[in-house]
C-alpha cells in the first residue's frame, strides 16, 4: 500500500506571532519551525497502517529549501522517502494543485494531510486535493482503519461524529485522536540522512487568492477583577455591561 502524507512546517506552538514592519509577511526571525502537529498525527497513522498492511510512506512538502530540516524529521520519525516541490506555497489551491500533479503520476492508495495548518488555518488542502484528483475526501478525521480496498473513518460533525466508509484511493485530513505522534529515535535520526529526498520543480498554476496584509488582533482591554466575596457583581456586569447573559 502506498501512503502519501502532506506535511507543512509552522511556527512552534509557543511562538509569539509578529509581522514584518510593512505587515506583508510573518516575521520569521528567530522562530523555530516544527512539523504542523496535525500532519505529524497523519504521518504516525500512515506508519502504523504500513506496519500492518505493508507498503511505503512518502512525505511531500511544497516549500523552499528551508523546510528540509523538518522533512528530515519526518524521515526520522519513519517515512521511507520524501518529495519537496520547490516553490513558495501561496494559497491552498496552489499547494493542492502542486501536490496533485505529483500524486497523479505516482499513484497513491491513501493520501493524508493534517486537518488544518496552524498558521493559515484554512483546512482546505485535503478537500481541494480530493477534488483535483477526482477522489473522495474526508475532513477532520479522528479515526482511520483500512480493510482491503475500503477505509472506515470517523470524522467530526457539528454536535457529534460520523462514520464514513470510502473506497481507496482517498484523501483525509487528520485530527487529534487518529494517532499519538511518535518521537524519533536515534536509529531513525541516523537513517533519515540517507533516505531519498527528491526535489521537483512546480507546475504552472493560476493564482486565485493571496494574503496581502497581516495584523495582530486588537489587545484585550484590562481584565476587570471582581472580589470573590461579591460574585453577584460578576453576574450583574455580564448582564448589563458585557450583555453576555
Amino acid at each position: 500500500m502506498k501512503f502519501l502524507v502532506c506535511i507543512t512546517q509552522v511556527p512552534d506552538t509557543t511562538t509569539k506571532i509578529t509581522f514584518t514592519p510593512d505587515k506583508k509577511a510573518f516575521n520569521a526571525a528567530g522562530v523555530q519551525f516544527i512539523i504542523n502537529p496535525y500532519d505529524e498525527i497523519a504521518l504516525t497513522r500512515a506508519l502504523e497502517l504500513k506496519e500492518t498492511l505493508g507498503g511505503t510512506v512518502t512525505v511531500i512538502n511544497v516549500g523552499q529549501a528551508v523546510t528540509e530540516a523538518n522533512i528530515r524529521k519526518a524521515l526520522a520519525i519513519g517515512a521511507d522517502d520524501a518529495i519537496r516541490i520547490n516553490t513558495e506555497p501561496t494559497d491552498a489551491y496552489y499547494v493542492a494543485f502542486q501536490i496533485a500533479e505529483v500524486a497523479k503520476k505516482n499513484g497513491y492508495d491513501v493520501i493524508l494531510t493534517g486537518k488544518e495548518s496552524i498558521d493559515y488555518n484554512g483546512g482546505q488542502v485535503p478537500m481541494m486535493l480530493g477534488e483535483l484528483m477526482g477522489l473522495p475526501s474526508v475532513s477532520v478525521a479522528t479515526k482511520l482503519d483500512i480493510n482491503g480496498t475500503v477505509a472506515t473513518l470517523e470524522r467530526e460533525i457539528d454536535g457529534g461524529k460520523e462514520v464514513v466508509e470510502t473506497k481507496l484511493p482517498f484523501v483525509a485530513g487528520a485530527q487529534k485522536g487518529m494517532a499519538e505522534p511518535r518521537i524519533p529515535n536515534m536509529r531513525g535520526i541516523m537513517t533519515a540522512r540517507t533516505k531519498p529526498l527528491t526535489v521537483v520543480e512546480p507546475a504552472a498554476c493560476d493564482l486565485l487568492s493571496s494574503s496581502v496584509l497581516f495584523d495582530s488582533p486588537a489587545a484585550k482591554g484590562e481584565c476587570k477583577m471582581i472580589d470573590p466575596n461579591n460574585v453577584g457583581e460578576l453576574v450583574n456586569l455580564l448582564h448589563t455591561e458585557a450583555k453576555a447573559i
Binding site: 511556527p11 509569539k16 506571532i17 509581522f19 510573518f26 496552524i118 498558521d119 493559515y120 488555518n121 494574503s211 496581502v212 496584509l213 497581516f214 495584523d215 495582530s216 488582533p217
Partner: peptide, 9 residues
Amino acid sequence: CFSGKGLTD
C-alpha cells in the same frame, strides 16, 4: 490566522 494570534487580508 496563526490560530487566532494573527489576522490576514
